[in-house]
Design a protein around this nucleic acid. Sequence first.
DNA 1: GTCTATAACTCGATAGAC
DNA 2: GTCTATCGAGTTATAGAC
Lengths: 204, 204
Amino acid sequence: MVNKSKDRSTEERILAAAEKIFLKEGMAGARMQDIADEAGINKAMLHYYFRSKDKLFEKIFSGLSRSFFPKLILIFESDEGLFTKIQMFVTEYINQMKQTPYLPIFVLNEVNRQPEIFIKKMMGNRRPPVNKFFMSIEAEVKKGIIKPVNPAQLLLNILSLCIFPFVARPMFEIVAGIDKKMFDTILEQRKKEVPKFIIDAIKK
Amino acid sequence: MVNKSKDRSTEERILAAAEKIFLKEGMAGARMQDIADEAGINKAMLHYYFRSKDKLFEKIFSGLSRSFFPKLILIFESDEGLFTKIQMFVTEYINQMKQTPYLPIFVLNEVNRQPEIFIKKMMGNRRPPVNKFFMSIEAEVKKGIIKPVNPAQLLLNILSLCIFPFVARPMFEIVAGIDKKMFDTILEQRKKEVPKFIIDAIKK
DNA sequence: GTCTATAACTCGATAGAC
DNA sequence: GTCTATCGAGTTATAGAC
């Protein structure tokens, strides 16, 4: 390690740069030259540290996936009541994605292009992580707290309402004729509005 | 035109092939060779007819956008009541996208990457197409039929619930542990479930 | 209009000096 | 570890015969 004192190491700077470029451009669109420029070094160094573009991408992708999904899944697996879970999930998701707004479309894209790889990386040997959530929904139905709902539909609705705004942000700003600041306000409101919307839709 | 009788013209076959490949792979991922193979001709013809990959992509992209958005926007602009509009939009959207399931993620991606181009191509000089829809929502609020809602939030919710399932299909199948046939069933159910969900959420 | 051949270029990857 | 220079594969694009 030649790096003097306070500077981030070259490796760290490469990882940060690669994450930024890959998130924005996707695997196919990203250029090693762009990553090198962003990191303030040259292409040769990328290969010195990570051998190939594939390997570098793989590192970034699994890092992002791992830092992101588990925390959210935990909420669904928790022992809170359904309404609390929904409130927690929505708030947590919006807060997280405000930090990394390109992440949702990036993940969806790469999963679309290579579902098999995603299965291996993300799921490993685990069973689908939503079983417990489905059961808790059915329990609340039996208790008479919410209407009879298909748990898969409800999960899909929750995910749609949380994730889609980040995926569709540029399109929506254009179609609805609003600017970035207004959209930020809308996102902030959604922390309260979306749980309210969902609960109104399913409560008896 | 050398083409004999019944066969589609070369130009048409190129356009159909390009649409298919671009939809699946995106601009960065698509190869001219793949398009040529799909069309059953060689690469040179692509350039003979459309000069460059950029120009061909541009043609496909604006064609897809134009054939797609306006029909849906029309529903929002119609004179039906709000609940009817929602029911029509959801059904129409799901029917359409079952034909072209790759379209939503394709459009969202390319709009994300080049918002300016999308603005020019799609919007031209028109004003945002949702003003009338927003006003009709506010009218229904005044009439006391629905709760007070932010129209932008409601539109975003409707779009989320319709579009997201197509964008997230592979991911959801994995996370929820379901197969393609089950997902098709879910989509079919959504034609009724989503309007019910929305209306339950906003009606007084 | 259509094809083959190939030029021109982009980009990931490597060699080798320091 | 870092750089410059360059290679080689893969792609877009063009030339030219038919």
